[in-house]
Design a protein around this nucleic acid. Structure first.
Lengths: 256, 256
DNA sequence: CAGTGGTCTAGACCACAGT
DNA sequence: CTGTGGTCTAGACCACTGA
């Protein structure tokens, strides 16, 4: 630790800005395992004194590593090396619910409800669900966790006609829909990446600006009616979506 | 402009940190269209004087908006409202090449080559491509652009046996493979989100830390041999991937 | 050349955590 | 209470842009 923050080696020329030099040092120490997950770094003021840099410069170095998820800062407590998050892989060809998906791989699921009730629909919801004037919308908003680690924020909207009592949904929305004979059999998803805002980042326990997978899904019944409109945000560092592609729809038939 | 940066309305209580209050003001001005793409903001020193804040605080406010892609800073020149990037949608069920995909929607494609040649394989490439000792690998690394806007970084690796002369690839890799009878008919992709590093961000003309879609693809021949191993980074603000999901592989057959 | 953003400093006060 | 990170200031020098 003493050598990591020694004042030696900080050249004002050649190595680029001082905060990047320090950032590189710390990053390499983590990569090399000299700093392990959970380890605490010295207080910013101490790092500043040890390196001979100002506290502002030390903070700027740490800031980048917090942004990339390598460090975690806790006000009043300290700065720590982040825990590694196991990356989960989700097959992106079958229409499954989060609950079923996690059960299949032996993980438990917890939901923290943020909203669960009937509301006046937003214009976006009217569009997606094809609502009429005066229709109400059931909104289910929750943080999905596994083993205490938040993995995703899920915001589902359904017509009140489909789900008149949203308070009855406990673990799995799809299980409730199945019981009502309204489970979607087809869905269209759009996937993109976005930097998480302050609120969403906090819910997922990642720093603001961290990369997240944004998934927008519209689910359909066999007769083509829209059932659900769901917008989810997955932690970019915890989730992989896997897809299988084919050259053309029927190319593989001859070779089953 | 004068009222936007007036010193009135900065309360040290209630509105949160000063830099967030200023950030919100500027962000709302952009959202409301009072600041249009290409507009320049006053110099940081002027904004500081107008608001009565210090330059460091003004910079911190601007920093966040640059991070989320709403502002662009040019050293020696100024700070500007970013141009809006049209979001493209890519169907994620057919195996197409970037070139074909863009041609289909009437966009031109430009490639800026970063690397194109035969190299000694990295361990990762040996694994993915199933290379033997002494085998060499063809590496094609390029920035994909459309109408001058960089959209993705593509890093393709192929066995030298599949592509002995990588220098011969011009626009479309798949066109070259097709000519050699080695075009993949099936592929497996893994999609995740990640914050872009400094180098990749620069190549895509976005600020470091911006969200990107990371796609890893392994392409197969009809006989199951691996042809390509490609890692791509797409700009999160410019790309949507669309997928259609089904409940079970054969559910929809009865209703064509 | 003057003006811009990029970096850096020393010092201050605040809010919160843990004792 | 002490120690931590979070915020903020005033002032300085540098590197780059563009006239």
């Amino acid at each position: 630790m003493e050598q990591l923050f020694s004042s030696a080696g900080f050249e004002d020329v050649g190595g680029g800005p001082l905060y990047l030099q320090l950032q590189r040092r710390i990053g390499e120490a983590i990569a090399a395992g000299r700093l392990k997950p959970g380890d605490s770094l010295p207080p910013e003021r101490d790092m500043a004194a040890m390196t001979g840099l100002s506290r502002v410069t030390v903070r700027k170095a740490v800031e980048g590593l917090v942004g990339s998820g390598q460090l975690v800062q806790k006000r009043g407590s300290g700065t720590f090396v982040a825990q590694r998050v196991e990356r989960l892989e989700q097959a992106l060809s079958l229409l499954t619910s989060f609950t079923e998906d996690m059960a299949r791989r032996g993980k438990n699921v917890e939901s923290v409800w943020l909203t669960r009730g009937l509301h006046a629909p937003a214009p976006e919801e009217v569009m997606a669900l094809g609502l009429g004037a005066g229709d109400r919308v059931a909104r289910l908003e929750r943080v999905r966790r596994s083993d205490g680690v938040p993995l995703a924020i899920e915001r589902a909207s359904l017509s009140a006609a489909v789900l008149p009592e949203p308070e009855g949904v406990e673990a799995s929305l799809y299980a409730v829909l199945e019981a009502r004979g309204m489970r979607p059999v087809r869905a269209v998803q759009r996937i993109s990446a976005a930097n998480l805002g302050a609120r969403d980042a906090e819910l997922l326990h990642v720093p603001p600006g961290a990369a997240g997978l944004r998934i927008e899904r519209i689910g359909y019944l066999p007769d083509g009616r829209v059932v659900e409109f769901t917008r989810s945000l997955y932690r970019g560092d915890a989730y992989d979506f896997a897809v299988e592609l084919k050259l053309a729809p029927d190319t593989e038939r001859k070779d089953p």
